[in-house]
Structures are given as C-alpha cells and as structure tokens.
Design a protein around this nucleic acid. Structure first.
Lengths: 214, 214
DNA sequence: CGAAAGCTTGACGAGCTTCAACTCCTGTGG
DNA sequence: CCACAGGAGTTGAAGCTCGTCAAGCTTTCG
C-alpha cells in the first residue's frame, strides 16, 4: 500500500485519490485504518453468500467510513465517482481525543441514518422509497451550501440504477419505473440518466412520507 | 423524577426499575441522559406521522440505548418486560474517558446491527426473517452464558406478535403464519405464545440465510 | 463503428398485505 | 362462580405490489 507523506491536520493522515469504481477496501479485510471522504462519492455495501448486495450508504464530503468494532471490515467500499480519501491509522484514536469525539458524534449519526433507512425499507412503497432517495440527495446538496432556486434543484445520480436499487431494496426495473412515474407526475425531470431536476420538492416530500436524512 | 443515590461504577449513575410496557422516554424528548439495560428487555422504536412504527431494536442486559447526536431523541423507548435501567447524564461524557470508549465501541456495533437488520429486511423472505429473528434471540441467550443442550434451546418471546412484525417489517398475520410453518417443519415448538423451543438450530440458520447478530 | 453494458418497457406470477371472522386467554363485575 | 368484554393470536380469502423473465433500446468506450 503506497501511502504518501501525511499532512497532519487534526489527526488525519495519508491522503489519496481514487478513480471511479475503484475499491477502497474489501469486506473481510483487516480494519487498520479509518477513512474520510475529501471529495467525490463513496459507497459502502455488504454482500451475502449468494452474491446479493445491500448498499449501506453513499458517503460524500466530510463523512467517515470504514469504522469497524472487531478489527475486520463488515462492509466493502468502492468509489462511485473519482474521490479523494483521507485515512488515519486506527491506533491514532488512542492519542487523538479530538478525533475520538468527532467519531463518536459521527457514529451516532450513522445509527440514526441506518434507522431512517430501515424505516424507508420496511414501511414504504417503491414510489415513496425512490422519492425519499431523491429528497435525501437534494438535502445533501443544500447542506453543502449549493444555494439555488427551490423550484429547480439539479441532483446528480452518479451511481447506476442497480446501485440505487440495492440501496432501496428494490429491483432495477422498479427504480426505473418509479423514476419515470415521478417524471410523469411532473415532480422531476430526467434530462439524462444521471441527472434529475427536482421541480416540486414539496410534492416529492409528500410522496416520500418520511425523509431519509442519510 | 425520583432518582435513587448513585452507585459510582464506571461513570454509571442513577438506577431505576420500570414495570413492563412502560415508557422510558418519548421520541422528540430532550436527550439529556444515556441509558443502559441492567435487566429485562427494552425496545426502541420510531413513529411516522401516520402512526406506523419501526422497532429499531430489542435491548437486553448490558446494552446502551438513548444515544442521540442532536440533543433530541429520534426514537422512543419502552420496557417490554419489567426492567432495570441505569442512566447517566450526557455531560458525564466530558469527564469519563472510559465511558466514552465503551460508547464508541457500542455505537459501531449498533451500526453493524442496523446494517444486518437492513439485509434481513430487504433481501429475505418472510420465512427467513422470522427464522433470523429466532436465531438472533438464541444467540443472545447463548452469549449470556445460558449453557444448554444445543438441541432444545428455549427462547422467550415477551413481545407481542405485532412488535415482532414491526421489527421485521411484516404484518402480524404473516409472523403468525411463518411461526406456525416453522413449527410444522419441526424446527421449533411453540408450547405457548411467548415461548419457542428451538429443536433444530441448524435448520433454522439455513432458513435464515444471513444471521442477524443484533 | 461496433460490441458490451446499462437502461427501459411489457407481461406474468409469487408473496405479502389487507380485510374479516373466529378462537383463546385474561381480567372484571354481577 | 360464572358471564362477558376486550385484547391478542390464528386462520382463510381476495387483491395488489413488486420481482422475475424477456425483449428492445440507448449509452459508453475501445
């Protein structure tokens, strides 16, 4: 593992840039480092024996991933887009109290996100799930300070339909259908496969029922 | 709030005993304390506007609950059985490094559990979910040092069928049907509604596919 | 420019939810 | 002591949503 020299900033060590669709670590790997997204999008996922997949999260700028209690990664991580990733040895936790505090806060949020996702997965129709997914992405863009007209939020969908499906617990066909339905209802526009223009965020929220904040 | 004097053990403060089916805190309450189960069973859940419910976990001896990043509880908590609960002010985190370390570890496990549950919820048939639920309870009993014959594990089901349903994302009718199916297959016996005797844990595991460890 | 991968659309069937009726158990009051 | 009411659980029947299979279409990339 070729690690570049580490700029010491708040306990954060080596920085590295990955091309898109590149693994960062594999499920089952020894968990020796903690990761944080600098730029781009990372997704984490778990695999079953029969090669089914649950995507457990899409991580964007500022988010931690790769946390593991037992020294072994329970999920895998790949880049969706090209991404910059910081990492720090897990042993740095011993000495860096600030990092520990950050991680504790972040972990609680992760639990919250996971529970939100559970609500979406069990209690919602396919339409509600897809709507919730779009709302989540819109919220995330807004949080990142993308100041824009409320009535034409452009959301990027760098991941494939199958990725979305495996996140929402649906088939790729259903994702495709529901996206088109929402377009037919005039809530969104789909100029190309990887872009969604939200024209009625309120209507979308109503469809979503519960907002996924993860 | 009648808090008894606090036995200081590893930063854990006030102890309190609740009868069964008693709220410990409500969704939306200010999160000023952190809780830990001393005895009995607690369940945490989230509500939607339309009064649907997702049970996010059943907590038994030793488990923490009520962790919240934003000073407000995102879930509610009630006792399933009569239960002893320790609690400590959230401000104790500042001074107690040992508690912080425990919580960080516990939080990561919670994320893992939530993700396991997600796998179960999205990728499994109703039969697999119910089987996974029973295996989870059996594992938990074993972990608690209940040394017993592998071929007659008695599992208590103190929660209602609806509670199980809301945990597994099913209807109570389906839970009922699948439990009876498993009994018909000779994998379990149901002497009464709140007891399941697992007679073939391996067969049950096979049905479950993925084991829920939460 | 052509091949491969990703996406969409249609038809069909399985599995779960919903609705409804009935049973069982518990507790309460006459 | 028994009748009755209410909640929880079970069981049956019908309907709908979503997954699966299959074919056609579009985008991407060498």
């Amino acid at each position: 593992m070729p690690n570049t020299a580490s700029p010491q900033q708040s306990g954060i060590g080596a920085v590295r840039v990955y091309p898109d669709k590149t693994p960062v670590y594999y499920q089952g790997d020894a968990a020796t480092r903690i990761f944080r997204v600098n730029s781009g999008v990372i997704m984490t996922f778990r695999l079953l024996e029969d090669s089914r997949r649950q995507i457990t999260g899409f991580c964007t700028e500022g988010e931690f991933f790769g946390l593991s209690p037992d020294g072994e990664h329970m999920d895998g991580a790949v880049t969706v887009t090209s991404a910059g990733v910081q990492s720090v040895s897990i042993s740095a936790l011993e000495t860096d109290a600030d990092l520990r505090a950050q991680l504790l806060d972040h972990s609680w949020r992760k639990v919250e996100d996971a529970q939100n996702l559970m609500m979406t997965l069990t209690k919602s129709s396919s339409e509600a799930r897809v709507a919730a997914f779009l709302v989540m992405l819109a919220e995330r863009r807004k949080r990142r300070g993308a100041k824009q007209d409320e009535n034409a939020i452009e959301v990027r969908l760098p991941m494939s339909r199958l990725d979305i499906a495996d996140y929402l617990g649906l088939s790729r066909e259903t994702v495709s259908r529901r996206l088109n339905d929402l377009q037919g209802l005039g809530l969104i526009a789909l100029p190309d496969t990887h872009t969604a223009n939200i024209t009625e965020i309120d209507g979308l929220r109503r469809k979503a029922g519960t907002v996924v904040t993860g």
